[in-house]
Design a protein around this nucleic acid. Structure first.
Length: 289
DNA sequence: AGCAGGACCCGAACGC
DNA sequence: TGCGTTCGGGTCCTGC
């Protein structure tokens, strides 16, 4: 590995983190709101968490009435009180296509609409999942009910974060990745947040101070905001689907920067495994607590 | 409750 | 050059 910013050897596709999920909502809403689903093609049935017959019966003939988000989960509200919970995981994408013949690679679910267009879910890794539930039961589903605070909500404050961190005995990185305290941080952003906060990723959550919580609170908001500004993550990509080069890698301080020098103190950035995840940090300025 | 480990997937990177 | 192996991302699940 070379110095920071000189070589980046691998790239990832746009990884749907919280900001990207919001972008999907903004793009899809005008295209599908008010549209009725005429038919569904389930090309990869395993990603549907419901009984397949029930899934079809409850969606066909219903209308998309709006799209919401909770954490990284998309919530498609349909008429007759149904909501489709959809998680993009690593590489899931939605497209609305006019050409009836066109089908992107790795298409897994097709919703045919009443205007002749279709809403297509495609996902190279097949990691995404869909779960149809009653709208009034969304908050009680196992995937939604465990979720913590929205990072841009008024409830997300240093004090609230501190109170929650005090109750956790696990390592801070694991706690932040769990989505149970604050939603939206993935493996890359977590490393950046903890670097900004000068906290060692293996620190025990309950050992952190109010000031630590304040640093994490601020870094979380700033880094997620920055991700929006630079058009999403595109952490390692040489190019994205449009052929554009991603820019966020220019701003990574530690993640994927093993062997680079810390800009604060010149120490070498280290890579370890934590909770089975690649973890990058500066062992000098990120304090273990 | 925490935590390790495996499962799910595929393409890119890597090793030979 | 070609081919087999390794890796990693978010989340769930099992078992200790």
């Amino acid at each position: 590995m070379g110095k920071l910013g000189t070589t980046f050897t691998r790239i990832e596709e746009n990884m749907p983190e919280l900001p990207e999920v919001q972008t999907v909502i903004n793009n899809l809403t005008p295209l599908i709101t008010g549209r009725t689903v005429k038919e569904i093609d389930l090309l990869y049935p395993k990603m549907i968490q419901n009984d397949l017959v029930e899934f079809n019966q409850k969606i066909i003939g219903r209308k998309f009435i709006g799209i919401r988000r909770r954490g990284k989960y998309l919530l498609f509200d349909l008429s007759d009180g149904q909501t489709l919970i959809s998680h993009l995981r690593m590489e899931g994408k939605y497209s609305v296509l006019k050409d009836p013949e066109e089908l992107p690679k790795h298409s897994h679910v097709v919703f045919w609409l009443d205007n002749g267009e279709k809403l297509v879910y495609h996902d190279t890794r097949k990691f995404g999942r869909m779960h149809l539930v009653s709208t009034n039961e969304v908050d009680q589903t196992k995937e939604i009910k465990k979720l913590g605070l929205e990072p841009f909500s008024s409830e997300f404050t240093p004090e609230a974060l501190f109170a929650m961190l005090q109750k956790k005995k696990g390592k801070i990185k694991v706690v932040l990745l769990s989505q149970e305290v604050v939603v939206g941080l993935g493996n890359i952003y977590v490393d950046e947040v903890l670097y900004a906060a000068k906290i060692h990723p293996a620190s025990i959550s309950a050992n952190l101070t109010l000031n630590d919580a304040k640093e994490i609170w601020q870094a979380t908001k700033e880094i997620l905001k920055k991700a929006i500004k630079y058009g999403g993550t595109t952490i390692f990509s040489f190019k994205n689907a449009n052929g554009d080069i991603g820019h966020f890698q220019d701003y990574l301080k530690v993640h994927s920067q093993e062997g680079a020098t810390c800009k604060r103190d010149g120490h070498l950035v280290e890579k370890i495994k934590l909770d089975g995840r690649s973890t990058y940090f500066c062992p000098q300025c990120q304090i273990l607590k």
